[in-house]
């Protein structure tokens, strides 16, 4: 169990399980969830607000499929940044409007020298390369090497699910 982990009470767990397949697309979505978990609509809203406040739920939102939006190219750009600069550079790269995720991760030497990962999407590889060049200019002074891994196929995409018997 990680630090600062929140223990979900059984009702929160039930509520999360009831919404994991998606929120009902209806006039009163929280009322529909409430019926399924035997709470009131106001309780569902209050509990979801609390789950957002404590960080268990990051947001209630739609996740777009990049391919359906014509973003056919997706490149995971990876950079070997000197450790003493990686946090500062990472914040700069993460702030670029076209970078959707940016993380520092461990290297796996010798095969994998890269410690900064930034995901870039575009309508074509050419567009992704322009964006990659922009990152390159930003990190250039402290970067010892880089690569880009284009996606070829989505093999699976589901997201985090709570297991039915966990907890």
């Amino acid at each position: 169990m990680s630090e600062n982990a929140t223990i979900l009470d059984p009702i929160d767990r039930k509520l999360i399980e009831a919404t994991q397949a998606g929120l009902p697309i209806a006039h009163r979505p929280y009322a529909e969830i409430a019926r399924r978990v035997e709470l009131t609509e106001a309780d569902v809203i209050a509990r979801l607000e609390q789950l957002i406040r404590c960080g268990v739920v990051r947001r209630i939102a739609a996740a777009p499929n990049h391919y359906a939006l014509g973003m056919m190219a997706n490149g995971m750009t990876v950079w070997d940044i000197a450790d003493e600069f990686v946090s500062e550079i990472g914040r700069d790269v993460g702030a670029l409007p076209f970078v959707t995720h940016c993380y520092r991760r461990p290297r796996a030497l010798p095969a994998w020298p890269y410690n900064l990962f930034a995901m870039v999407h575009g309508t074509s590889r050419a567009e992704v390369e322009v964006k990659r060049a922009e990152i390159s200019r930003l990190v250039n002074s402290v970067c010892r090497g880089s690569d880009i891994l284009y996606s070829k196929r989505i093999l699976k995409k589901t997201g985090l699910r709570l297991s039915q018997n966990g907890g």
Binding site: I16, Q20, L23, I25, I60, A62, P64, F117, G159
Partner: peptide
């Protein structure tokens, strides 16, 4: 929104969990 979901433009619509906040973890 119903149509966009049915067409697969949205892969999910609902609450997104932070696994770390409930004691879980992600790993690439």
């Amino acid at each position: 929104v119903t149509r966009l979901r049915d067409q697969g433009v949205f892969t999910r619509f609902g609450p997104f969990l932070d696994a770390a906040a409930i004691g879980g973890d992600f790993c690439l």
